[in-house]
Design a protein around this nucleic acid. Structure first.
Length: 431
RNA sequence: GCCGGGUUCGCCUAGUGGUAGGGCGGCAGCCUGCUAAGCUGUUUAGUCAGAAAUGGCUUUCGCGAGUUCGAAUCUCGCACCCGGCGCCA
């Protein structure tokens, strides 16, 4: 069962944070269940101690050739009581786990209250925004034959796409560019599994995401859904953040192994339930995309500094690509339950004359590590690591930003300087 | 997919129904003058008491269920690893 000691140790901060979120999370229910569970646990342990003690006495009697039948039948009542308590415990544990998995993280002190994404706070801007040259990314890319959304809809449905020709090469160039950028800074490249067990998924994201974001995959052909055991089905990953976080579940790092920095690369699969009608054209919001992701395990003292580093990497990557952007800090209404602090970097889209999300960085502090049991040895004391994640490049999303910001009047797209060495040419598209 | 062999503390290993033991490594302490050795302790997690140092109890032999007063050990199911066969990008 997930450790509730953590909640008791941090109860003041948890309450304060829930108030700032104006959350209706039932923290008192959790504390009450926990207290009842511990009471049962104590009773059970006393009975087990008695059983163990008397079993040893029976052993001693039998070794001396005596008759222990009376003692054995006297223990039957104890055994019945043990069985009764053991039968009650799972229902408490299920409810406690469910509440733990849904408990919002303790917010960083700087996070402001806000009802939804309209109340996020802009903290800085970079680059010069410009007017649209040749329409939106959908128009630019389709005219040049670089994407085929219609046939993808025929074959796979809405929100899928074929990339074609030089756009495929540009996508791979972006991927390699982002990998090289981070490898140079000491990040270890990691290509992850694309499916993951539910039991690990619960530790990396809120249960709400299971409904809205995740596809189920890998159900055994012969198994009917109602026969599936908990955690048996595989889920398609929504980001490589998730398998990277789960990778070290149950482990204890030594202090000198930290910080451990990965740069993950994987496709991402998202149901996008609840976003009907939003961004339905082109490849801006799709069910499947590729992403290069930063992920760091570190000590509790380091996580603020590393959060800044991850954000700086994101800005460096887009500055070298020459995409104008601004940085916004999530308010309580848009931050979700996992992160303690979260920023998005939004790039300028000339055709829409506004900034749209390109990357997202979160300091999850110990939310994931508590649920995945990932610790480190801090001079003999075992403490939960902090985990952080941040997009390096979300490939298809970045392609839309490049298409719009580098579009020329003749329908071609200039290849950003940083990618020319990978592309081997300076311009793509056109007729 | 089939056949065989495995899974005991960080690593190696003993243990065929009666208190999970040994070795190595790590950590802490002690002792000792010679590049290191020796000795002692400690090395799963939870819970209770305590301000704390600590102490009690439970738990832990891949996971789950069962038999039993008592399971690493017996029974059933499952997972994973290694070897072989088959298939295969």
């Amino acid at each position: 069962m997930l450790t509730t000691k953590y909640v008791r140790d941090h109860i003041a901060e948890i309450r304060e944070s829930l108030q700032r979120r104006k959350s209706d999370y039932p923290i008192d229910d959790l504390l009450k269940l926990d207290e009842e569970w511990r009471g049962l646990q104590t009773k059970l342990q006393e009975l087990q101690a008695r059983r163990n003690r008397e079993s040893l006495e029976i052993s001693a009697i039998k070794k001396e050739g005596g008759n222990a039948d009376g003692r054995i039948s006297a223990l039957a009542a104890v055994k019945a009581e043990i069985n009764k308590i053991e039968a009650e415990l799972p229902s408490y544990e299920d409810r406690i786990n469910h509440l733990m998995w849904n408990m919002p993280n303790v917010l960083h002190g700087s996070v402001k209250y806000g009802k939804d994404e309209t109340e996020n706070v802009e903290i800085r801007r970079w680059g010069e925004t410009k007017a649209a040259v040749a329409g939106g990314h959908t128009e630019i890319l389709e005219k040049s034959g670089l994407v085929d959304v219609e046939r993808a809809a025929k074959v796979a449905g809405a929100r899928f796409y074929y990339l074609k020709g030089d756009l495929v090469l540009l996508a791979k160039s972006l991927e390699r560019y982002a990998l090289d950028f981070l490898v140079e800074k000491g990040y270890v490249p990691l290509q992850t599994p694309y499916m993951m067990k539910k039991e690990y998924y619960k530790g990396v994201t809120g249960l709400g995401d299971f409904e809205d974001a995740l596809y189920t995959a890998g159900r055994p052909m012969e198994a009917k859904p109602e026969e599936m055991r908990e955690g048996e089905e595989l889920l398609l990953i929504a980001t490589s953040e998730h398998p990277i976080a789960a990778m070290h579940a149950g482990e204890v790092f030594s202090a000198k192994e930290l910080p451990l920095k990965y740069v993950g690369v994987s496709p991402c699969f998202r149901r996008e339930a609840g976003s009907h009608g939003k961004d339905t054209k082109g490849i801006f919001r799709v069910h499947q995309f590729d992403k290069v992701e930063q992920f760091v395990f570190c000590s509790q003292e380091e996580s603020s500094r590393i959060y800044d580093e991850i954000v700086a990497n994101e800005e460096g990557i887009f500055q070298r690509l020459g995409i104008p952007y601004h940085v916004i800090e999530m308010c309580t209404g848009d931050i979700g339950i996992v992160a303690a602090k979260k920023i998005d970097l939004e790039g300028w889209f000339p055709s829409q004359q506004r900034y749209r999300e390109l990357t997202s960085a979160s300091n999850c502090t110990d939310w994931q590590s508590v649920r995945l049991d990932i610790k480190y040895d801090d001079r003999g004391e075992r403490r939960y690591v902090h985990t952080l994640n941040g997009t390096a490049i979300s490939i298809e999303r970045a392609l839309t930003a490049i298409a719009e910001n580098y579009a020329n009047a003749d329908g071609t797209i200039t290849v950003p300087d940083a990618l020319v060495q990978y592309m081997g040419k300076e311009r793509i598209g056109g007729r």
